[in-house]
């Protein structure tokens, strides 16, 4: 296992993670640590355990074995909402937005939730349209360059804007770690790079550590500081984008890696 590039304390440290569904092993022996502000790409075939990995970190699945430390705090098996409150956010393969609300309302609700007062009555005593939340929502809408859709109902949005809104809603609460599950899935090849440029520069601005699952190796090579390759539920290669993508096992086992620059399945 390659250690983190710089010597800082890791923001995320995963040890011996395993997830089984009955007799099926979805993930096993995953040990990874990620330093702050690193951008990590996660590659692998469908069913290789990438989404299971993301789901365990964000609390959607409870690991069968192993530990997950976030900023030295053990978050293994915590419910997702508590993990969110600690500073880990995620976006989804299929954008999870509120289709009947406008882009602004989607964003302002996400902002208000993140900034609500604590305590038993925090939800009830914090107004949703506080000047703070409105400013935060508008700032994030601008950051993701979707301001011309501000008043559009979310169900009417083009696919790329939906994705940006989805990621924006994850970012509006100022998380320190963000997990992107296939940010470019469902996006046409021509739009992918533009979308990722917008997303990655926004995340850089906010100094967010990123883990993103991606099938397109060009995108991975272009945006990831470091790449984890998953096969059969575990990490088979971990290094800089170049190291991982040039790894012969990775090239053998993960389709699309062999011919960078070519067409992808």
């Amino acid at each position: 296992m390659k250690e983190a590039v710089n010597g800082d304390k890791p923001i995320l440290a995963v040890r011996d993670l395993e997830k089984t569904f009955g007799s099926v092993v979805a993930a096993r022996d995953i040990t990874v640590s990620v330093p702050a502000e690193q951008t990590v790409g996660v590659i692998g075939a469908n069913g290789a355990g990438k989404t299971t990995f993301v789901n365990m970190i964000t609390g959607h699945l409870t690991p069968s074995k192993g530990t997950i430390l976030f900023e030295d705090k053990d978050i293994t098996g915590m419910p997702s909402r508590e993990i969110t409150q600690l500073g880990i956010s995620r976006s989804f393969q299929v954008a999870q937005i509120f289709p009947t609300l406008s882009v602004f309302d989607n964003m302002v609700i996400a902002a208000a939730v993140a900034r609500r007062a604590g305590g038993l009555l925090g939800n009830v005593t914090t107004p949703v349209h506080s000047p703070d939340a409105i400013a935060e929502a508008d700032a994030t809408i601008d950051l993701f360059q979707i301001d011309r859709y501000r008043n559009t109902t979310a169900s009417q949005l083009p696919q790329g804007v939906r994705k940006l809104l989805d990621i924006g809603m994850a970012v509006v609460g100022w998380p320190r770690l963000l997990l992107l599950d296939e940010p470019t899935s469902g996006i046409s090849i021509e739009e992918k790079f533009d979308l990722m440029n917008v997303v990655m520069s926004a995340l850089k601005t906010r100094k967010i550590t990123v883990l993103f699952v991606e099938h397109d190796m060009e995108i991975v090579a272009r945006f990831a500081d470091r790449v984890l390759a998953f096969y059969d539920g575990t990490v088979i290669a971990d290094g800089t984008a170049h190291e991982t993508l040039d790894n012969p096992r990775v090239q053998e086992l993960i389709s699309g890696v062999r011919k960078p620059g070519g067409a992808h399945a």
């Binding site: 964000t58 995620r90 937005i97 509120f98 009947t100 939730v113 809603m169 994850a170």
Partner: peptide, 15 residues
Amino acid sequence: TPIRDNEIRVEFLGV
């Protein structure tokens, strides 16, 4: 409305 629309997202907002 968010809960009616999409509970998963509400949970992942931390609620």
